[in-house]
Write a protein that binds this DNA or RNA. Structure first.
Lengths: 232, 232
DNA sequence: CGCGCGGCTTGACAATGATCAAGCATCCAA
DNA sequence: TTGGATGCTTGATCATTGTCAAGCCGCGCG
């Protein structure tokens, strides 16, 4: 493993305070895997044998039930996924597949659980991580239940602009098909929402979106920091 | 505080392994409150000054944004709510109000965080609790995104029957208006879903529901343990 | 006890969003 | 380079769900 990658993982709040020796143990037990795009990593319902860390690329978490599918989230570097299932030694509630060619670190769950039992600082870091994950999903629920499709799309654009340092032109980081599914709508409806928002301060050109009137966009889509602020 | 209440709280996985002296500290710092029905306990966006424990009665967690409201969960005894906000010292993402006359224990968040820092077993119990809460919300998301309204209602009935030990007749534990909102629909649509399910193995009489053909109900609503099993 | 309010049901109608289908553009593999 | 597959857009149509409204019932309060 490259030192830059190792340091990037070390800098994650989850691992930052772990005892150095135990961090070494985790990494020594782990596997680095380079995976092409569109590869299934794990299937919902299967045991969570590894904690996954996305180093490069991106991973889609999705769920299926009786013929229906829905994307739930995209995990980008440097992030972990399936921490809760790992800690609980429980089956995973979502499947995961690579969206782009990806570099992943797979840390065996037994090692994660061992360090969790042995290192108090790790246990506390896991608390913070899980609390953050929990609040993230609660906010997604609120987004779904309290907003129309157009509002969800508009607020996604606003968040993306904020995340891009306020740039006027932002690029969608993944395809519109997945974005639609994450936002809880069909691709057709996403196209229509983009169309509708062109009267409210944006210009859409494929994966590029220019925000020409942020005020109009916010008036239409009504951002709420208790849903949209990634730090809350 | 009555000994039975104290023991019931002590028996919660969250507190079961906490050092006895520290558990005493928590309870000594706490307040018992008897609250009538329909009283707002906390408003979303406010700081989470207390961890709440429902000892009797029930509490509705709900959210509002720009004129729209939605119920998110009902908390029943013996359970806590707003643990994540307490631990993160963050604003609460949902409001809470009593559904029925309730008896609550309010434990100051500063005390919770102090014991979290001092008692490893508490930290670990919090991990398990948060992981469980996180998985619960993920399952709610899947319920919303992967099912129709009728399926959501039908699976709610199935879960209620399982929770009632398989009884043929079950009672809705709270009003249909709140149930509709938790399941992500209007009260009118809930009534219609109950009506539709009368052709699929149930008989509805006010808050009583008789399941006369569980097989037909399951065939219609397609339960999935990765959504519906409360232990997963 | 009576009245008012809220919950719930039901019907009519409207709105939102999904489905189906066709066409275009792009990307990837042979 | 070419062909096929996939993503995306757009339109027509359909289905699900929300809104509005009225009526009934039960509960709580004066």
């Amino acid at each position: 493993m490259r030192n830059a990658d190792r340091q990037a993982i070390r800098d994650l709040p989850l691992f930052a305070d772990v005892d150095e020796q135990r961090f070494d143990e985790l990494l020594n037990a782990a596997y680095v895997q380079r995976i092409p795009a569109h590869v299934d990593l794990i299937r919902e319902g299967e045991p969570a044998d590894f904690l996954y860390v996305v180093i490069e690329g991106s991973v889609e978490l999705f769920s299926s039930s009786h013929g229906r599918d829905s994307s739930m989230a995209i995990v980008t570097p440097i992030s972990t996924f399936i921490l809760a299932a790992t800690i609980k030694d429980a089956p995973f509630l979502m499947s995961a597949r690579t969206v782009a060619p990806s570099k992943l670190l797979l840390i065996p769950s037994v090692n994660i659980r061992a360090v969790f039992e042995a290192d108090t600082r790790f246990a506390r870091a896991i608390v913070t991580e899980l609390a953050t994950c929990y609040r993230g999903v609660v906010k997604s629920m609120k987004n779904l239940k309290l907003r129309t499709a157009v509002e969800r799309v508009g607020n996604y654009i606003i968040r993306l602009q904020d995340k891009s340092g306020g740039a006027d032109v932002v690029e969608l980081p993944y395809g519109k098909k997945i974005l639609a599914s994450i936002l809880g709508m069909t691709p057709e409806n996403l196209s229509r929402a983009f169309g509708a928002l062109q009267s409210h301060g944006i210009v859409v050109d494929g994966p590029s979106i220019e925000i020409i009137d942020r005020t109009a966009l916010e008036a239409c889509c009504k951002p709420n920091p208790l849903i949209d602020d990634p730090r809350s």
